[in-house]
Simulated assay, not measured.
Amino acid sequence: MNKSVPALILTGVCRSFEQGGARLDVLVDAGLTIATGEIVALVGPSGAGKSTLLQIAGLLERPDSGDVAVAGQACSGLNDDRRTALRKVHLGFVYQYHHLLPEFSAAENIILPQMINGRSRKQARERALHLLGSMGLAKRADHRPGQLSGGEQQRVAICRALANAPKLLLADEPTGNLDPQTSDGVFAELMRLVREEGLSALIATHNPDLAARMDRRVTLRQGKVVTL
């Protein structure tokens, strides 16, 4: 992707929900631009709309109004198939819980999304082993998730998110389930790997120390994105 083209642009995004017979405005004319190679922290209290913003940025949910552009591609007019195709090529996701497939090994969890995208098994395994090695998990490649520690499971989930070399990583409290020491180590590995891969990232976190390591911080106030 051309470095002059932002990885993500949200323009005038609005999203509301019905709650108890009343309308709850979660996002109100929200706007955000993330440059290529930029890592942005999304902070704020629970219920502020961070997860909703990530879902919309990741083309998993449509806004009521406004537009989302990913890697220079405006998405508001795309049908579901086109949005899915764009998501598979340009976006990677990491959640608070790893969501690894328990019946497959660490390597296989990283191989599968690549093969779905058309890569040969040999190429996919090479990529998987490269990513696992970069996370210090080369010797755990053939272990199933249940044989891994919580920190190792989340490292594998990060590798899986980066398997198809996305342009933008979206992470929702990616170390929120880990103890402080493990969280710190996993986050350091996440940041290093994102930098090495030349990705952009939008990472939601409650942890101010983790947020401070990123390029800049934004929050949601009254439904709008505000730079801190």
Rank of each mutant, 00 (worst) to 15 (best):
H90D: 08
E108Q: 15
R119M: 13
Q181F: 10
R217N: 07
L54D: 01
K88H: 14
C159I: 06
L112K: 14
A161S: 14
L112T: 15
L178P: 00
D209G: 09
I39E: 05
S51C: 05
G47W: 01
D172A: 04
T52M: 03
R140I: 07
P6K: 10
E61V: 04
Q222E: 12
A204Y: 02
R127I: 07
A124H: 10
L78K: 13
E18A: 11
A30V: 00
S16N: 05
K139V: 15
E189Y: 04
R15N: 00
P180T: 02
A212K: 15
R121F: 09
R87L: 06
Q114M: 15
Q19V: 14
Q96D: 12
R87G: 10
R127A: 13
V218R: 06
T33F: 00
A188D: 11
L53G: 04
D67M: 11
G66A: 11
D172W: 02
L32Q: 09
N79S: 12
R83S: 13
R192F: 01
D179I: 06
N164Q: 11
L91K: 01
N117F: 08
V156R: 08
R192K: 07
I34T: 04
G31W: 02
L42A: 08
M1F: 12
R127V: 10
R83V: 05
E126L: 09
P6E: 10
K3F: 06
G136V: 05
L193A: 11
G150K: 13
H99T: 01
V226L: 12
Q154W: 11
I56Q: 04
P145H: 11
G185S: 12
V13Q: 07
T227G: 00
Q19P: 00
P174Y: 05
L101V: 15
G20C: 03
A57M: 13
R121L: 09
L132Y: 09
F104L: 15
A30F: 01
V28P: 00
L24K: 08
R23I: 06
G118L: 10
R217H: 07
V68S: 05
V194W: 04
V186Y: 10
L32H: 10
L193F: 11
D142C: 13
G44L: 02
L100G: 04
G49C: 00
V13G: 08
R140W: 08
L86C: 13
A106H: 12
P180M: 03
A7N: 12
S200K: 09
L59P: 03
H90K: 14
R217V: 13
L10Q: 09
D64P: 03
L60I: 04
N109K: 09
D29F: 03
E152M: 08
V94H: 03
A204L: 02
S16Q: 12
R119I: 05
P45G: 00
D215M: 11
C75D: 07
H130E: 15
V89S: 13
L101G: 03
A141M: 14
L100T: 06
H99V: 01
C159E: 09
A171Y: 06
G92E: 02
D25P: 00
V26C: 02
V156E: 06
R195I: 03
P174E: 07
I39W: 02
E103Q: 14
L178D: 00
A74N: 09
G66K: 08
L220T: 06
K167T: 14
R62W: 07
E18R: 10
H206E: 03
H143C: 15
G150H: 13
R83Q: 15
G21S: 07
